[in-house]
Computed example of a mutant assay.
Amino acid sequence: MFVGVGASRVCDLFKKAKESAPCIVFVDEIDAKWMVLKETLALIAATDRADILDSALLRPRRFDRQVTVDVPDIRGRTEILKVHASNKKFDSDVSLEVIAMRTAGFSGADLANLSNEAAILAGRRGKAAISSKEINDSIDRIVAGMKGTIMTDGKSKSLVAYHCQACLY
């Protein structure tokens, strides 16, 4: 309901939650933002970076339970791929089961990224459907990173440095 919104909308969310208590509030990416809730509110939060959480957040009585959800198995990856493939056209030689076998260790977000990246590549290549070539290139891109260009001019390096610095705040 409040995905990608500013702080005032999030404050409204918690105000509504207190008025509606008991209730559950789910916060994704808790490593990026957190707050302590009291009384009859339940906070359910997710992160893929528990290693960088503030130690104050992890003190006793802040969270009663911690549930670790591992990356999906082959069956789970196949089902996730089906969801992300439902609105995309694939060549007849593309098998979601084969893709699932090749993507061990991929999270659901990685699989969504793979599907979207393959669609973008197919579009850039002027294809009407995603082929095995786009899937293979997308897997390589996700695993090994994008093929970049070498920055030799100082202005480009400065712009990237400013951009990266701004992302930290």
Rank of each mutant, 00 (worst) to 15 (best):
K155P: 01
I74A: 15
D153W: 12
G154A: 14
L58Y: 02
C167Y: 15
G108R: 05
A32C: 10
L121K: 14
G108H: 07
G126L: 10
Q66M: 15
I24H: 00
F14N: 03
C23S: 10
F63L: 01
L168Q: 09
E29L: 06
K88N: 13
L41I: 12
I150V: 08
A128G: 15
V71C: 10
V67K: 01
A56N: 14
E79V: 10
S95R: 08
A17Q: 08
P60A: 13
V71R: 13
P72N: 02
L57S: 15
D137Y: 02
P22I: 01
A50S: 13
L58C: 07
T68Q: 12
V83G: 06
A144H: 11
V27G: 03
E97G: 12
R125N: 09
L37K: 04
K33M: 12
A112Y: 13
A118W: 08
K155C: 05
K155Y: 09
T149K: 12
D64W: 01
V67I: 15
S8A: 14
K88S: 08
I120A: 15
L41D: 06
A118F: 06
C164M: 11
R59N: 06
W34C: 05
D31T: 11
V83D: 02
A50H: 06
H84A: 11
N113I: 07
D73Q: 06
K18Q: 09
V160R: 05
S107I: 13
K38F: 03
V160Y: 15
M101K: 15
F26M: 07
R77Y: 00
S158W: 06
A85Q: 01
L37Y: 03
K16A: 15
Y169Q: 11
E29T: 05
S55C: 09
T103D: 07
L159M: 15
E117M: 14
D70R: 07
R49I: 01
S156F: 08
E19G: 14
T149Y: 08
A128M: 05
S8F: 01
H163P: 01
